[in-house]
Write a protein that binds this DNA or RNA. Structure first.
Lengths: 110, 110
DNA sequence: TGTATATACATTATATATCAAGGTATAACG
DNA sequence: CGTTATACCTTGATATATAATGTATATACA
């Protein structure tokens, strides 16, 4: 197994899928949830998020529906079976990558 | 503390610095060492490596010198004090990032 | 009433990292 | 004597994240 070139670039999609696997949510809510769960490590830009959401939907990993509450229109996203599969694969790849990274860094005397 | 935008893009430099912190080495040797230490997780492309080496040298994080052995010309790289500082910072950032990543992924039921 | 902030969607231009592919040259192996 | 490994490097394509910008409504506050 080799680290795909998409891994580093793809952590955004993995984070989004991971949040949505816990329940349907809308864009703005995803950003807030990510910030909160990572203890502010991740402050995902909206210019990063929306292209990810649209791409995942195009791929069939997400489905969306509109809902209005408090006079606000929210576009909720739901993870499909395909999306869950992708999430499992991405998590595995992340674990593999981070293990490799830690192994290499572990050799360094610094 | 926030994850810098350079983190994901910068793992390449971190890996290279990490290898060189263990002793001076040349480009081709770095690729081989990385593959070996990561158990083939990382197969760094030469088109990725050389720009990293040149940029780190330009920054003052590396110094280079030529050596010939077995009729082969090898350009060895040595980590400077500044390079060690950068390595420490990058490692810290990596640990912070991977912790955040694991925290977010840990919430996912999948 | 007016204004700033938070919410909520989205696009566009820019920077940059990585890769694939190509180029040059020597040594070693069969 | 041709293939593989070693060893340096550059260029062009691709992709991703960000910054900046745009639209619109609700809420808090002065």
């Amino acid at each position: 197994m080799k680290i795909s070139k998409e891994l580093l670039k793809g952590t955004g999609a993995t984070l989004v899928l991971s949040v949505l696997a816990g329940g349907d949510l809308y864009g703005y809510g995803i950003v807030k949830t990510l910030a909160q769960r990572s203890e502010d490590a991740f402050a995902m830009n909206e210019g990063t998020l929306y292209p990810i959401l649209h791409a995942l939907e195009e791929e069939g990993c997400l489905e969306s529906y509109w809902e209005t509450a408090d006079g606000r229109n929210r576009k909720y996203y739901h993870v499909t079976r395909k999306g869950l599969k992708k999430l499992r694969e991405n998590k595995e790849e992340w674990e593999y990558f981070s293990a490799g990274m830690n192994r290499v860094l572990g050799y360094s005397p610094v």
